[in-house]
Amino acid sequence: MHLGILTLTISLPGCRSLKEKRQRMGGLHERFGRNPAIAVCESGELDRLDASEWTFVAVAPAKPQVEALLSEIEDKIQRTVDGRVMEATREML
């Protein structure tokens, strides 16, 4: 079994409320948490309105499958979230 961790820091320029922050992040937990091979949580920047940090953990039998899952997550977030990915870090275990 292989495990990969993807942490994304997302800038949300102009965000003025916690409600707007949640709307702009578009339900990441619900969208990605449905996949049994992925765990997701908001892991940082909880007190800031103009930024958000999310961590995704993917598990698969082979490393290429884990890398594909993490790439798919990152690509989908860049296309669908009303914000800009400022930093993306990956760790393979």
Rank of each mutant, 00 (worst) to 15 (best):
M1D: 08
H2L: 11
H2G: 03
H2F: 15
L3C: 12
T7I: 12
I10R: 05
S11E: 12
S11T: 05
S11R: 14
S11V: 06
L12V: 02
P13H: 01
S17A: 04
K19L: 08
R22A: 09
R22C: 03
Q23R: 15
Q23D: 10
Q23Y: 12
M25T: 09
G26R: 13
G26H: 08
G26L: 04
G27K: 12
L28S: 07
E30A: 15
E30H: 13
F32L: 07
F32M: 03
R34A: 05
N35W: 05
P36V: 08
A37W: 08
A37Q: 14
C41T: 14
C41G: 11
S43K: 04
S43R: 08
E45A: 14
L46G: 04
D47F: 09
R48V: 04
D50P: 08
S52I: 09
S52W: 04
E53I: 02
E53N: 00
W54S: 01
T55D: 01
V59D: 06
V59A: 15
A60G: 10
P64Q: 06
P64L: 00
P64E: 02
V66Y: 01
V66H: 05
V66K: 01
A68M: 06
L70V: 01
E72C: 13
E74R: 03
K76S: 11
I77E: 07
V81M: 02
V81Q: 05
V81D: 00
G83D: 01
R90Q: 06
R90T: 10
E91V: 15
E91Q: 15
M92R: 00
M92L: 15
L93P: 14
